[in-house]
Design a protein around this nucleic acid. Structure first.
Lengths: 341, 341
DNA sequence: AAGGTTTCCGCAATGCTTTGCGGTAATCAA
DNA sequence: TTGATTACCGCAAAGCATTGCGGAAACCTT
């Protein structure tokens, strides 16, 4: 195993000077003669010297690494957010260590621990679907280690976060349904302890009130966010006597699942059941019919959460803030009826 | 900024013993008395001691980090492969540092350099679309730094890699078209220097020969792999006098784009133009009509490339190998004609 | 009681970089 | 010629963990 990188020591020996001289020359320290500086820089360039980050990390007590925990990697939403984080991180000379919780609370806790042991400087987290308690973040708070959340958040009084305007978006969806003649608007929600689920539920209800519709518990279904569960939830909704004429899925995965089940039963979209999703996955445009959905500025969400992270790095005592990102309802065919009532 | 982690020194001071004693006690070294060992382990447990990876890295000259370079993060194919890599890496106690080239050669070169400077132990790479020269990998080869490629590969005589059975898959697609009555089978290829493009082209031609069709250059189009370019390529194909009755897109992105353009012109799929893609993105099932495509075992590809990586870590002199992963043609509506000729 | 064994534990170097402080040589002024 | 600057450069410590080797104390043996 040959030596992969030159060290200051290597170059010092080669030039017959001390390590400190080499170090100083590389930063143009005035104590070093111009000739010596030139020689050293020349050699460093030839040898492609680059300081060992391990040594620097040890010395400066900073690793220039951010831990990122997401429920999964393959969902477009998360990978897109990660892209945004990466972009800002790179700009700051930071790298990110990604860990996926696979929507499991246990794995999330484990990831927090592992990443901290790896000496990342802080964490950017999107909670797993199962996460209902938050003690695993306490050590970070106590030690003022930078921590920020996005999308699925918690402890917003203590931790900065970035979220979408979930309530307003959900409200606008409900009203959109109403304008298209729907009167029995159902909502397939996610796990109750998730802020996104609660906020969208609130918005859904507010929308019903705004439109003068009353809130019918029969039109509310729950599921975890898997396709299978979402199909079952849709089936329950269609089998019950609730007779929905519109379904709002908490996210596009749920909406796609609902679409499958609705088609399965020979019902037409949007004429029998209008359908709207949330998050605007790319394939919303290619399904049949194209899915009306809420567009999330995912990349920007990543950028923003990274910015909040670095704000925290710069000032660990900074009070927590919450950025709420505006979303947009993108109307496609799945929710637009030709014959409005 | 409070101290985030206990060091051996901290604990040594607290117990009034030397650092080496603490270190040894933690590994149950026989030189340390059982009582002392117990006390030290107890304290370490309370304080949640975990060795500083920076120090270990310096000492052992290994960082337990793998650099991963992909064309982008948001495509399902790549994030899925990354999931597979992550799984195996975690099992080995390694972390991965992800860098996306954004399909840019320049960024790829930069990523290689940056990651190496970060002292990752090696690289797992999928070439960018633009990458046609490979000098940026030479230093790795020279220093026997572990390097493996997946999907878009190069220098297969020197570097281990994992690829799909591109030629065979493309051949089977062509034959599938033929069996469904298509006789004017077009192929929209990608950049010519990419192995996947070449191999699939070879397979396509072989398929034509196998079916007794002749090779018509008018039925071959090129594009970079963007949606826009793919739409233009499709348009050229349809505008030219080539009169294709089937289109094979080099990947699903291209196939989706083609679908858009075909529908745009009021042509029917599959009856006017049959369509097949490659890679089986999730949304192949939700488009209209559902897209026949080649299923890539993406997660397995990630696992396998990681395995090859660790093989290289264990034995830097190991001769290069190439794993060819079997794919499967998943037939859906976009290619099945009711009235076969 | 003196020499020999065990049993336990600490020193110091290694891996790499930075930086305060001390030191040497050369140059200049008186 | 001597004392004083200046200009350059090296020592060593700190950040953390590991480990070969040397050392001290306690026990036993004769």
């Amino acid at each position: 195993m040959s030596k992969r990188h030159v060290s200051l020591k290597d170059m010092a020996k080669e030039l017959g000077v001390s390590v400190s001289t080499v170090s100083r020359a590389l930063k143009n320290h005035p104590d070093i003669s111009p000739e010596m500086t030139a020689r050293i820089q020349q050699l460093a360039h030839e040898r492609k010297y680059s300081p060992n980050p391990l040594a620097m990390g040890l010395l400066k007590q900073q690793t220039k690494m951010i831990g990122v925990i997401v429920p999964d990697l393959v969902t477009h939403f998360y990978s897109s957010v990660i892209s945004g984080i990466e972009e800002i991180a790179k700009r700051h000379g930071y790298y990110i260590l990604i860990s996926s919780s696979n929507e499991s609370f246990e794995k999330e806790v484990e990831s927090v621990q592992n990443l901290m042991n790896t000496r990342v400087e802080g964490l950017i987290v999107c909670l797993s679907q199962e996460t209902g308690s938050f003690e695993h973040f306490e050590p970070l708070l106590k030690n003022e280690i930078p921590l920020v959340f996005f999308d699925r958040v918690c402890m917003t009084d203590k931790v900065s976060s970035v979220v979408a305007d979930n309530a307003e978006a959900a409200r606008s969806i409900t009203c959109h349904f109403y304008k298209n003649g729907c009167r029995r608007i159902a909502y397939i929600a996610g796990p109750g302890h998730l802020n996104i689920s609660k906020e969208r539920l609130d918005g859904y209800r507010q929308g019903l009130r705004d439109c003068g519709l009353n809130i019918d518990p029969d039109l509310l279904e729950n599921c975890n966010l898997s396709t299978d569960e979402a199909i079952k939830a849709t089936a329950r909704l269609l089998d019950s006597g609730a007779k929905p004429d519109a379904i709002f899925g908490i996210n596009d995965t749920v909406a796609f699942a609902a679409m499958k089940e609705i088609k399965q039963r020979g019902l037409r979209i949007p004429d029998d059941i209008a359908l709207v999703g949330f998050t605007d996955e790319f394939h919303a445009t290619v399904v049949d019919p194209p899915l009306t959905s809420i567009t999330h500025p995912t990349f920007e969400m990543g950028q923003e959460v990274a910015r909040l992270f670095f704000r925290q790095v710069g000032n660990p005592e900074a009070p927590p803030v919450q950025t709420i990102l505006k979303t947009r309802l993108v109307v496609r065919e799945s929710s637009v009826r030709k014959n409005k009532i």
